[in-house]
Design a protein around this nucleic acid. Structure first.
Lengths: 194, 194
DNA sequence: CGATTTTTTGAATCATATCAACGTACGTGG
DNA sequence: CCACGTACGTTGATATGATTCAAAAAATCG
């Protein structure tokens, strides 16, 4: 279970860690299993852990006054899940995070992560790299959201994350794109890509 | 000119730097003036500098095939401007950055920034804090873009950055929100907030 | 001031949402 | 292994929010 995790850290930190270092990392993280449809986080909670997905899939979303869900982020194997703001600042979250499949996680608290970053520079590099990538991805998503039509949004997502279309219900992808499920269905009917 | 910059770094790094440390910082940065409407970055360029705005205002935007501009980010005093992806990875940018007012910048190259972060830990803390804030802000903007109506987007922006409405032409704010200038005009007519 | 840019307004059009009904696939229990 | 129920996706009809185009009004600037 920890092997791909170790490989992942090596890859993103740019180093190969020693067994001792990995023992440190392992000690800081706690495994957790969560069944499909269970919540990892609900509105009003404080997000106490940063979770690494070993296996499974999750989504992070808001619910508006009309009760509509808006998916902000999906997570699959080797992705991290958390409401960053709530996690870093211990403020109540406005998001829900739940499991789309039975999911296995490795969780770390803010205190443990902070300590780990100090004792093991590789983890510091990792979180830096993650932030950088996250920032860039977010920028691209904003650009797409404000400048593309519904059809272009679909094609763009299909290009970037085709895996989403294999794993997630179409209605959820519509929610992620900010369009209605019916519109996505009609777009796909007329599109070459499927 | 450097005084507010020094204060800014102290504030975001969480320390008070010594005069020696500030000399290091100062040496890494180059002042630059740029007049209204001049470009700091154009599509296809590699973004060579991270720029801190001492005075003035800028915008970062893309231009689509139809020639429409989509503003991704504004910058004012004490904000940083750069295409992060292009700057970090030396890849050609898809963005334009230009000045909305006569603007004074302090610029740092990637090499100088990297070195500075190593010799002066405060600068490392600063960039970390920036990434964190940037990530959180981006997440919020995505949430707004996919879940709010045009009117709600306007009210949301008015709440978060009222200063934008005082400094930038309304048509640019419309572009930033991803709505047409006419729509923004009509929304404002019927809105209490102005 | 006059000239240029920006904002507003109106009318027509378009993209997308909404609502409702139907089709299809899947999984569970009999 | 079939039948049924539940989820999900599709389709059509209609409604609506937002865009577009054109022109007038207002604000800004030299």
């Amino acid at each position: 279970m920890y092997l791909p995790f170790r490989k992942y850290i090596d890859e993103y930190s740019g180093d190969t860690m020693t067994d001792d270092e990995f023992a440190l990392v392992k000690a800081a993280f706690t495994p957790k299993k969560i069944r499909k449809k269970q919540y990892l986080l609900q509105e009003g909670d404080v997000c106490k852990h940063l979770s690494f997905i070993i296996k499974g899939a999750m989504r992070q979303y808001t619910v508006d006054e009309k009760g509509n869900e808006h998916i902000v982020r999906f997570g699959i194997e080797n992705w991290w899940m958390a409401d960053r703001e709530s996690f870093e600042f211990s403020t109540p979250t406005i998001y829900y995070i739940d499991a789309l499949e039975d999911t296995e996680l490795l969780q770390v608290s803010l205190a443990n992560l902070t300590e780990l970053k100090q004792t093991f520079p590789g983890m510091n590099k990792l979180t830096l790299a993650l932030d950088k990538r996250g920032h860039i991805a977010a920028q691209k998503r904003i650009t797409a959201a404000i400048s593309l039509t519904a059809e272009e949004k679909y094609q763009n997502l299909f290009k970037i994350h085709p895996i989403f279309f294999q794993r997630f219900p179409q209605a959820m992808i519509a929610s992620y794109l900010g369009i209605s499920p019916e519109t996505l269905s009609r777009i796909r009917k007329n599109s070459i890509l499927k």
